[in-house]
Amino acid sequence: MFDVLRKSLKTGCLTEKLPVRDEAVSKAGTACQKEIARVFGKSMAVRMVDAGSCNGCELEMHAVNNGFYDIERFGIHFVASPRHADMLLVTGPVSRHMQAALKRTYDATPSPKLVIAMGDCAACGGEFGVSYASCGAVSNVIPVDAVVPGCPPTPLQLLEGILTALRRR
């Protein structure tokens, strides 16, 4: 118990100690916070849908929740159900086997909703494109408000992508 506390104290607050790059994170994050206040009120709930990704994009989604980026401090949090979500964050080319599930998730999300296609696959089909097994870009299946290119997009690119989507509202 004491060891845990000691290590926690020694580690300190990661979100303050960050080098140069992190200024970009706080800037984008704070801007997001403002836009969220305008569009949704105080905070924004995100439901992620992996519609066929290689799992690379998901790993960076986990990363935006780590101590360095801590996306929750900007009022953005991930939720379990689309019914609680303001935004869908969709990854992957949409596999045909996920097409119905993605549509249903979209329908289950209350309006006003935002949809972001994260990663090259979601943006344009990426390395996989359209085939017998894949519908390609997310926009081939549901309306998309913004795309975040990258394979996978870095945590900062993801945050900036969310900001772009919010600004369009």
Binding site: D50, A51, G52, S95, M98, F128, G129, S131, A133
Partner: peptide, 9 residues
């Protein structure tokens, strides 16, 4: 569910 035809592609 995430079968995207990698072998065929």
């Amino acid at each position: 569910y995430v079968h995207k035809g990698i072998e065929k592609l």
